[in-house]
Design a protein around this nucleic acid. Structure first.
Lengths: 221, 221
DNA sequence: TAGATTGTTAATCGATTAACAATC
DNA sequence: TAGATTGTTAATCGATTAACAATC
């Protein structure tokens, strides 16, 4: 049971790495050379010790009194994530979700390069969205086999998601970034990362409710 | 330190609630009345016992041999999240991120109702995006005070995020759903939920790398 | 009744935090 | 040197899992 899901160590730390990367890029473009765990912790609202633990993943070591070398950290994080070279991906379904990703891919710190988008809508085919060409669905098979891309960003309507996923798997795709609310069933050598916006909203809702009632009860500072 | 961040209990469970809700809605529309923790666990790739623990949050109790009453669970989850009535929100910045949310809001299981969007782009103002009217930025202040909305979905460019956030706070907004990569600084009675797409990509990247090397080394089943 | 499923209590596991030594 | 910051080791905390009793 669940042996099929890749057990990855230190998932919470891994999830924080891109945020560190973003801060580090900002610092680097400000001309800074070193950064302390304290600084990163303050910006991200974490404990400094947690930051140091997280950065251990990169195998980069800091210098007491000085901090970590920013360019080393950037390299270290990218290296750890496999973002040293760009991550090539296709986008399937070029609706709102799709163009959201397309519009945000530079925010992801160079990690993501979307080579092509695929859609059924004839009005989109042949055009470009955010600089990425949109192809007709049938061309996906051919392009997958030609280009060695192994991530697909899945942004189709929920009721088509499983069907499309099955095809992607048949074409040899090994990683699916799933933006649909559908729980996909895939073979064990395929990795699915499901993105669920609603869970963020759930957290926000609960926190707001709690802060409201804390206010009412006067337990709030 | 960090006393300012609302400490919320059982965050992982809370994050899973919307996914249960989605499954339950599907089941309900198929005419099902009861569901077992086993079924939900299988769909979401979790252990059944974890599902039962999660559902404890709702205070709904199941019946041995039969399972949980689906409509009770739906009500229980919505109630716990404060989604029994719709969550009213404004969208600030109607770019790609914005229209992504607008396009996906029905997927969130009724939780979210976006009353209005605000943008600086004169071409968008006065039009509707996914049925939501787009207003000029200056009208935000007035509408916030008139409508009792307390969530804003923040989708502006990263370098404007802090400035806009300051204004929102000044207008009395208590919850910000932050889709920018900027680490916002806000007073302690304001809740910020930051959404970071890149962290999902990080997890996917690491899992893919691991599965590749497992394949090479033959450690993969 | 027998068997399936929930719910409770305890055990384990992993993430975060604390304490402090090492080092520049 | 003194002091700031990293890095190590142990402690704590919370989430998940296991075992099993309760119950329909």
């Amino acid at each position: 049971m669940n042996s099929r899901a890749f057990k990855v160590d230190k998932l919470p730390s891994i999830k924080r790495l891109p945020a560190y990367l973003h801060l580090l890029h900002n610092l680097a473009s400000d001309g800074e050379e070193y950064v302390s765990s304290n600084y990163l912790a303050e910006k991200m609202q974490l404990q400094p010790i947690l930051v140091r633990k997280d950065l251990e993943l990169t195998r980069v070591s800091g210098t007491p009194r000085i901090g970590y070398c920013i360019s080393d950290l950037i390299k270290g994080i990218k290296d750890f994530l496999g973002w040293d070279e760009s991550v090539d991906a296709f986008l399937v379904g070029a609706g709102c979700a799709g163009s959201f990703i397309l519009g945000n891919r530079d925010l992801m710190g160079v990690g993501l390069k979307i080579l092509a988008a695929f859609d059924k809508d004839p009005r989109k085919i042949g055009r470009k969205i955010h600089g990425v060409p949109v192809f007709d669905w049938p061309r996906l098979r051919e392009l997958v086999s030609r280009t060695r891309v192994d991530i697909v960003i899945l942004c189709v309507p929920p009721d088509e998601a499983q069907k499309v996923s099955d095809k992607l798997v048949a074409y040899g795709i090994k990683g699916i970034w799933n933006f649909t609310p559908t729980n996909l069933v895939v073979p064990e050598d395929v990795v699915v990362q499901k993105e669920d916006l609603a869970s963020g909203l759930a957290v926000l809702s609960v926190k707001l409710n709690q802060s409201h009632s804390a206010l009412k009860e006067g337990t709030f500072p």
